[in-house]
Simulated scan of single mutants.
Amino acid sequence: MKIIRTNKAQVTQDGAGVNINRIAGFDGKSLDPYLMIDELKSDNRSDFMAGFPPHPHRGIETFTYIRKGGFEHRDQMGNVKAIRSGDVQWMSTGRGVVHSEMPLSDAQGMHGFQIWLNMPAKDKMRAPRYQDTTEHPAPQKAIAKAGHFKALAGTWQVAGEVLTSSLQSLAGEGALADVTLTAGSQLHLELAQFGKVMIYIHSGRFENYGEQTLLELDPSQNLDFLATDDVGFLILAGQPINEKIAHMGPFVMNTQEELHQAVKDYQQGRFGDIV
C-alpha cells in the first residue's frame, strides 16, 4: 500500500458545545466524495451531553457510526431511533432535513463518528431518505489473530468472504468499514474498484501514525496492512464526484445562489419541523 498524503484531525466544538476531532475537506478535492470526518471520543460526559439540538441540512449525506455510547435521532420525516454501540445510520438529506441527535441518558462514555458525503448536483434536491442498521446489523468477520472487519456500508471481499452491508446507496458509491488488528496481524484488500481510499486511525497506532490521523492511499494498489501495534481504523472509500462546492454551515450546494435559496427555504419553514 502506498500513502499519498496524511492529515491530522483538529480539535473543535459543534452542536451545543460537543467536543470533537474534525477533518474537513470542503474544497471538494481532498476528501471527495467525503466532506468531513468528525470523531467524538470521550469518557467525560461534559464533552458530549449537550448534544446536537434541532438543525437543518441540504445537499449532503450524514453517516453516523457509534462504537460506544449512543444517541437518539429525531427528524421531520418522523424517524425516532436510538442509535447505540455497533449501529450505523445514514441520512441522505437531499432538498432538506431537520434533525437532532441527543446523547442517551445512560451513555457513560462516547466514541462515534459523523461523516459527511457530498451529494452530486443531480441528487441534491431529491426527497430525503433515512436508513439505519438497528434491524440489520453490519456484517462482521474475524480476521488475523484477534482482529475484526466490520462492513459498515457497501460490499467488501475479505479473506475469501463477501460482506454486504444493508447500506448500499451512499453518494459517490461510498463504502466504509471498521477494522481492528492486533500487533503482527495483516489485512489484504483489493481496492481497484474505488477512486478514493482513506484510512482514519481511531485507536492505537500504525508505524509512525497515531490516533486521529487520516491516511490517503493510492487506490491503484492493493491494501496490504501489516499492524506494527494494536490498531483500530476506519476505511473510507468511494468515487470522487468532481463537482464545484458552495458551502455554508449545514448546507452544501454547487453555487452561491443555491446556498442563498437553501437559507431562504429553511427560514420560511419549507424544511418542516420535528414533531
Rank of each mutant, 00 (worst) to 15 (best):
M1C: 04
K2N: 15
K2Y: 07
I3E: 12
I3H: 11
I4H: 00
R5V: 08
T6I: 15
T6D: 07
T6C: 09
N7V: 14
A16G: 12
A16R: 08
A16I: 05
I20N: 01
N21W: 06
A24Y: 00
G25M: 03
G25C: 04
G28N: 05
G28I: 05
Y34T: 02
L35N: 03
L35R: 01
M36G: 00
M36R: 03
I37Q: 08
S42P: 07
D43G: 14
N44L: 12
D47N: 10
F52Q: 06
H55Y: 12
E61P: 02
K68R: 14
G69W: 00
F71K: 10
M77W: 02
G78D: 11
G78R: 04
V80A: 03
K81N: 13
K81Y: 08
S85T: 09
W90H: 02
S92C: 12
G94R: 08
V97Q: 05
E101D: 06
E101G: 09
P103G: 11
Q108N: 15
Q108A: 14
M110G: 04
G112I: 10
G112H: 09
W116D: 01
M119Q: 14
M119E: 11
M119T: 09
P120W: 05
P120M: 06
D123S: 13
M125E: 07
R129W: 12
D132I: 08
E135T: 15
H136I: 13
P137Q: 11
P139I: 03
I143H: 11
K145Q: 15
A146M: 06
H148Y: 07
F149D: 04
W156G: 05
V158W: 06
G160H: 09
Q168R: 08
Q168S: 14
L170I: 09
L170M: 15
A171F: 03
G174W: 00
A175Y: 01
A175L: 04
A177W: 04
V179N: 02
V179Q: 03
V179K: 01
L181C: 12
T182W: 06
A183S: 14
S185F: 06
H188Q: 11
H188N: 14
E190T: 14
Q193F: 04
F194L: 01
F194W: 12
G195F: 06
G195K: 07
Y200T: 05
Y200I: 07
I201M: 10
R205M: 08
E207H: 13
Y209V: 09
E211N: 06
Q212T: 11
E216S: 14
D218S: 12
P219R: 07
P219H: 13
S220K: 14
Q221D: 12
N222H: 15
D224F: 03
F225W: 13
F225Y: 09
L226Q: 14
A227I: 09
D230T: 03
L236A: 06
A237D: 04
I241Q: 01
I241P: 02
N242Y: 02
N242M: 10
E243I: 00
K244H: 11
A246D: 07
G249I: 00
P250V: 08
M253N: 02
N254M: 03
T255G: 10
Q256M: 14
E258I: 06
L259S: 09
L259A: 11
H260I: 12
H260K: 14
H260G: 07
Y266C: 09
R270Q: 15
R270P: 00
F271H: 01
F271Y: 13
D273M: 13
I274Q: 05
V275K: 15
